[in-house]
Amino acid sequence: MKRILITGAAGFLGSHLCDRFNTEGFHVIGMDNLITGDLKNIQHLFHLENFEFHHHDITNFIHIAGDLDYILHFASPASPIDYLKIPIQTLKVGSLGTHNLLGLARAKNARILIASTSEVYGDPLVHPQTEEYYGNVNAIGPRGVYDEAKRFQESLTMAYHTFHGLETRIVRIFNTYGPRMRLNDGRVIPAFMGQALRGEDLTIFGDGNQTRSFCYIDDQVEGIYRLLFSDYHLPVNIGNPDEITINEFAQEILKLTETNNKIVYHPLPINDPLQRQPDITKAKDILGWEPKVGRTEGMQITYNYFKTLSPEELKKEEHKDFSNYIK
C-alpha cells in the first residue's frame, strides 16, 4: 500500500484530498496544527486502518516513521481574515514549513506536490492568467505575507528539483468552493452564504465589477490528483475559467437562497485583485483535465451543505486565539 502525507489535512481542500486518496487505496497520513483546520472535516476517517492523524506544526521538525511515497503540502492559512491576523505564521508555513517538507521528501525519496495559488499573480496586468505570467505583487502590502510566502514556496521547490533532482509538482489553485468551507472566513462564497442564511445584507467590497472564477472542489481534487501522477514539474493552473463579476455572483446567491437581502458596498481592500481567470491550456494539454461541474450545480450542493449547519455554527465566527503562533 502506497503511503502519502497530506498537510493541512483538516482544512477544506486537505480534507477532500484525504477522502480521495483513501478511496484510491492509499495509506493516508494527515497532518495539521488546527490553527485554521477543524477535526470535524476528517472525523469520518478516524476509524479506518489506512488513515492516521498527526497534530503537528510543520514549521517544526517533521518525523514520519517508515516509508513515504508522496507528500501533498496544503498547510497554510488561505483566507484574508486568517493571514492578515497571523501574518508571521503564514510566512513561516510557506518558508520553514515548505523547507521541512522538501527535506522530508528528499530523505524519503518521495514525490512532493506543493499547493500554490493564483495569488502569485497579484492584481494581474495579464488576462487571463497563464503560468508564464510573473505577476504584479506588492511584497510589503497587507496581502504580501500570503502572496510572497507562496512565491517563495515555488522558488524553493524548484531549487530542490533542480539542485537535488527531487520529484516535485506545483499546482496554482484558483478560487475553489464546496462543502466544508469555513463560514465567514473572508472569502466571497462563504461570506455571501453566511449573510444570506442569517438574513443580513450581502457585502461587496469595491464596485462589484471585479471578477472571479469559481471551481468546484471535486474538479479541483481531480486536477491535483492528475498533476501528482504526471511527469510535469512546472506550475500548472487548476481552476474554472468561467469568469463572473462579483455583482453578478451576488445576484446568483440571492436567487439561490431565495432571499431579498440588500447588497451594500464597502471600500475595496488594498491590492485586492480586480480580475481572476485561469488559462487552463496546460491542464488540458498535459493532464487531460478541465472542470466538469457547472456553477449552478456546484453552488446548489454547497448551499445544501451550509443549510445543515446549526444556528450556533451560522453565527459570525469568533476567530481562534492565534497568539501562541505569533513568534
Rank of each mutant, 00 (worst) to 15 (best):
A149W: 00
M31Q: 06
F163M: 11
E312R: 08
I140T: 15
H73R: 03
G223F: 02
I64K: 02
P87R: 10
Y303V: 05
Q275I: 10
I173Y: 00
I170D: 02
A110C: 12
E312F: 05
D242V: 10
N261T: 09
N271A: 11
D219A: 09
I88D: 12
H47F: 08
D218A: 13
A75L: 02
L256R: 08
G37N: 10
I64T: 06
S230C: 07
H27T: 13
P190G: 03
T59P: 01
E131D: 12
S79R: 04
H55R: 13
H16R: 13
I253F: 07
K85F: 01
I217R: 02
K315N: 13
N324P: 05
I170H: 00
F163W: 08
E252K: 15
D242F: 12
K315W: 03
I62Y: 01
R187H: 07
E132M: 08
P267S: 11
P241W: 00
G8T: 09
I286H: 10
S323Q: 13
F174A: 05
L96Y: 14
Y225A: 06
R3V: 05
G25H: 09
N260F: 07
E317L: 14
V120E: 03
H99M: 14
E290C: 09
L166H: 03
I4V: 15
S230L: 06
D231M: 01
K316T: 08
I35A: 15
Y305K: 02
F51C: 08
N237A: 04
